[in-house]
């Protein structure tokens, strides 16, 4: 588990867990669809995550959005999934970046947890997969280049693409 406090957002620490080889993605997706309030997390499909920076950019945008009273989706967690997407189509962003029945690796994010220990326990109990460190290397090993190319309409998936993709996230919605 990792806790990240984004610069300038001291009141919204992020609690993150990266799961590999998740067996019950369909169950998790169902919890989100049912609106189960025990599952107020952002579940991201790690296959479309390029790097730590990539995720953090979306988190910053989502948290800044709620602080300014500009939510496009239900809550800050769904907003993170939405803000990963380069366009403003909510259902498409959930389909592309959220958890689907076939999702293998999941990055789970909880914003400003009241009880971090309880959140971690609940995630470890609910998500059937092995946790690994959230390093750029581990994320890269999970990346599905074809899906990133499609989602961001890029030809190249590399270090060079990161700046462009983060820029797209930043100006999206304008």
């Amino acid at each position: 588990m990792e806790t990240i406090t984004l610069p300038h957002l001291p009141n919204h620490p992020l609690q993150l867990l990266l799961f590999r080889n998740v067996k019950n993605a369909a169950f998790l997706r169902q919890q989100l669809l049912d609106g189960n309030t025990d599952f107020e997390y952002a579940f991201l499909d790690a296959a479309v995550i390029l790097s730590r920076q990539h995720v953090l950019a979306a988190c910053f945008k989502a948290i800044n959005g709620i602080s300014q009273g500009r939510l496009k989706s239900k809550n800050v967690h769904s907003e993170i999934v939405f803000d990963m997407s380069p366009n403003s189509n909510i259902s498409e962003s959930f389909r592309r970046f959220g958890v689907s029945d076939t999702t293998k690796d999941i990055l789970a994010i909880k914003v400003a947890p009241k009880d971090p220990a309880q959140v971690e326990q609940h995630l470890r109990d609910s998500v059937r997969g092995t946790t690994i460190f959230i390093t750029d290397e581990n994320l890269a090993s999970m990346t599905d280049q074809a899906r990133i190319r499609k989602a961001y309409k890029v030809d190249v998936v590399s270090q060079e693409a990161e700046a462009y993709i983060i820029g797209c996230i930043a100006i999206k919605g304008s």
Binding site: R149, K153, V154, D155, V156, E160, A161, A163, Y164, G167, C168, A170, I171, S174
Partner: peptide
């Protein structure tokens, strides 16, 4: 703000964006 950002994003995507 947006004009500046759009230009910079466009430039950072030079050679990366799919054939539009």
């Amino acid at each position: 703000v947006l004009a500046e950002a759009r230009v910079l994003v466009k430039l950072s995507g030079e050679g990366i964006v799919a054939g539009g």
